[in-house]
Design a protein around this nucleic acid. Structure first.
Lengths: 104, 104
DNA sequence: TTGACATATCTAAAAACATCGATATATAAT
DNA sequence: ATTATATATCGATGTTTTTAGATATGTCAA
């Protein structure tokens, strides 16, 4: 876990929003998983297009955001067909919250 | 409390170090308060010069760092004569840790 | 195989940030 | 008053970040 990369990733309103939206995907992305057959459940994952629509930024920008958040460890991705689903990496987020509490 | 300003302030190794050093001022700044008469105790405060020396950056850079950390709410300052003593704002830091734990 | 769609990557331009030396301000000491 | 010291602010420059359009890659459907 690299705290500075995580802080950088969170230093932007849109990225911070994305992370928070993904806490409750079904609430913030009602049409979530519309593409997926029922038997495939990518729990909590939302595809780039849905995130882009809500984030109101260009496709390349959102893709870039998601990539940097993943590199920082905040998100993880699963590819299903032509879609990439991003979800929170709760383990890292929890570690970071602990780090903040005890080391900052 | 503006989380994004706080994240920005923490997105830099030197600034992150400063905040952590100030958790244990007596440990990291042995000559702390050398200028101060005993009866004036600015608990946990360290002057800019001492911080600069340890941070190994220019005086203007460190002054700027401290100012932005203060604006973000992470630090508070007390002026005593020609010195400005900076110390952590534990209240804000705690709030931020809670925010991270519950909202991120 | 072709065409449509989702996502990633590339490229470039603008905006923001980082950093320092120089200068200003404030206080202290002589 | 002058000088010295501590800190803040200014101004300039180099670096990083942001952002989007264009293009590439990969997948699906006909």
């Amino acid at each position: 876990m690299k705290p500075i990369d995580i802080f950088k990733a969170l230093s932007n309103e849109t990225r911070l929003n994305i992370l928070q939206w993904l806490k409750e995907p079904e609430k913030h992305f009602p049409k979530q998983g519309a593409h997926l057959p029922k038997e495939v459940s990518i729990k909590g994952g939302v595809c780039v297009g849905d995130i882009q629509e809500k984030a109101n930024a260009s496709q390349s920008t959102v893709s870039h955001y998601l990539n940097m958040m993943q590199k920082a460890g905040l998100l993880e991705s699963v590819r299903y067909g032509q879609w990439t689903y991003y979800r929170r990496n709760e383990e890292v987020i929890r570690q970071m919250a602990d780090f903040f509490k005890t080391e900052i």
